[in-house]
């Protein structure tokens, strides 16, 4: 096929489209009569109800179930999207919207920032890793574990040298988790350590923070133990789940197996204050046994 023939063919096709226009959405007329639109009861300017406020454990949408009560009781045990019913072969509108809302909340938790005044409001100094913004934080995990020379110097003057415990609060992958849980958990850890006569030291807030940033802070301060409160990668059940990572003798290159983790800290999981009280006791144990992570588990089993 030469160039001329091709041009002729394209012209022919374009012409054909002109004569017989493609159906547009607005031209569609259903064969069967449509159900009448129900009035919504809302005025212009009203807010629609917040569908994310509905408890997934109680949201049961199957119509005319045989054993609805029994299913509802099972649903109490899990936030999984079960018993959603269906509209034809598809989700109901509520299920679909809720799924998209939860997905959006998870994305927001990752992309949004812990507020600018969070650290200052809670009596902490703030530092930033090598990452310049969220995009870099998400694409360069290595930069989320390190500080530039200026920040290292700042941390050296800011934080006590060779403390037993250095607490770090890091935004991690969920800013929402930190805003919701970190300060309640931190208050419980501090009081728990004070009761046990362990100096809780001076906590610091790290923006664009990965767990490994605690290792760099270990290098800088020479702390015996670092305890990091960090936002977990959000899921569709909650965007506010936080973890605590405790590392004995943290330093750059320390093995991941040497970290002790308390995860799932959120209102429907482990309450922040209980997780904090538990963490204080864990810190005492780890300082006494001088080991954290898998080594601590082995010791407990021995």
């Amino acid at each position: 096929m030469n160039k001329q023939q091709l041009a002729a063919m394209v012209a022919e096709i374009l012409q054909g489209m002109g004569q017989e226009p493609l159906a547009k959405g607005g031209d569609y007329r259903p064969a069967a009569p449509q159900p009448e639109q129900k009035p919504t009861g809302y005025q212009d300017g009203d807010f629609v109800p917040d569908i994310t406020a509905l408890d997934l454990r109680k949201l049961y949408l199957v119509e005319e179930p045989q054993k609805g009560d029994a299913f509802r009781r099972l649903k109490e045990k899990t936030p999984a999207r079960l018993g959603c019913g269906r509209a034809g072969a598809r989700y109901k509108t509520l299920t679909m919207l809720r799924f998209r809302a939860d997905h959006a909340a998870a994305q927001d938790a990752v992309f949004s920032q812990v507020s600018r005044d969070f650290a200052a409001k809670n009596g902490m100094e703030e530092v930033q890793t090598l990452c310049r913004d969220k995009d870099e934080y998400l694409t360069r995990p290595d930069k989320g574990r390190r500080f530039d020379a200026q920040t290292q110097e700042k941390l050296r003057t800011l934080l006590p040298q060779k403390p037993r415990v250095q607490i770090v609060v890091g935004d991690g992958l969920s800013s929402a988790a930190i805003e919701a849980n970190a300060m309640d958990c931190l208050a419980a850890i501090r009081e728990g350590l004070q009761v046990r006569r362990i100096d809780p030291g001076k906590p610091v807030f790290v923006r664009y923070c990965r767990v490994g940033a605690g290792d760099a802070i270990g290098d800088i301060t020479g702390c015996e133990l670092v305890c990091m409160l960090v936002g977990e990668r959000p899921g569709l059940v909650t965007d506010k789940s936080m973890s605590v990572y405790i590392t004995y003798r943290p330093h750059t290159g320390v093995s991941e197996s040497s970290r002790t983790v308390v995860s799932n800290i959120h209102a429907q999981g482990t309450p922040a204050v209980e997780a904090g009280a538990h963490t204080a006791q864990l810190i005492e144990t780890i300082l006494k046994k001088q080991v954290s992570g898998v080594g601590l588990h082995r010791e407990a089993e021995a």
Binding site: E191, G192, Q194, V195, P271, V273, E274, H278, A280
Partner: peptide, 13 residues
């Protein structure tokens, strides 16, 4: 409710 450890240490303090 799950809050005994936190309450216990708050009392201890």
């Amino acid at each position: 409710r799950d809050m005994a450890k936190a309450l216990g240490q708050a009392l201890a303090a």
